[in-house]
Amino acid sequence: MSKSNNHMRSALKSVRGLGAAKEGVQHWWIQRVTAVAMVPLLLILLVCMLKLATGDHAAVAAAFKHPLFAVLALLSILAVFWHMKLGLQVVIEDYVHTESVKIVSLLAITFATFVVGGIAALSVLKMFFGA
């Protein structure tokens, strides 16, 4: 770093001398990206789901056979579970202040997200590819 940049740094940063992790904005940004993605995705799916949930199993199975519907469902699952993981993480970080409990909770949230999200995605794939 050139010396001319030094006046831009906060005193705290100079003292700690560690620099930024460069990842601070990523969490915030992905929460917004998934939020923006979900606005159209969920509006479309909500209407479809409402229609499907009031019909029989054959209608549901047929819907998930359609590539467009299957892709919409998979994209929604990705956005929903990613957004959920980020949101629950913030809630835990805000309210749980005992380090050990916090870390275990964050791990549990991460694992649960992948397990439940994986099951949801697999169910969609099974209906799309299955007999």
Partner: peptide
């Protein structure tokens, strides 16, 4: 977040059969 469990249950059921 709790509701995703319900939604996933519904998807599993749809994939499992009539």
């Amino acid at each position: 977040a709790a509701g995703t469990l319900l939604l996933t249950w519904w998807l599993v059921a749809a994939a499992a059969g009539p």
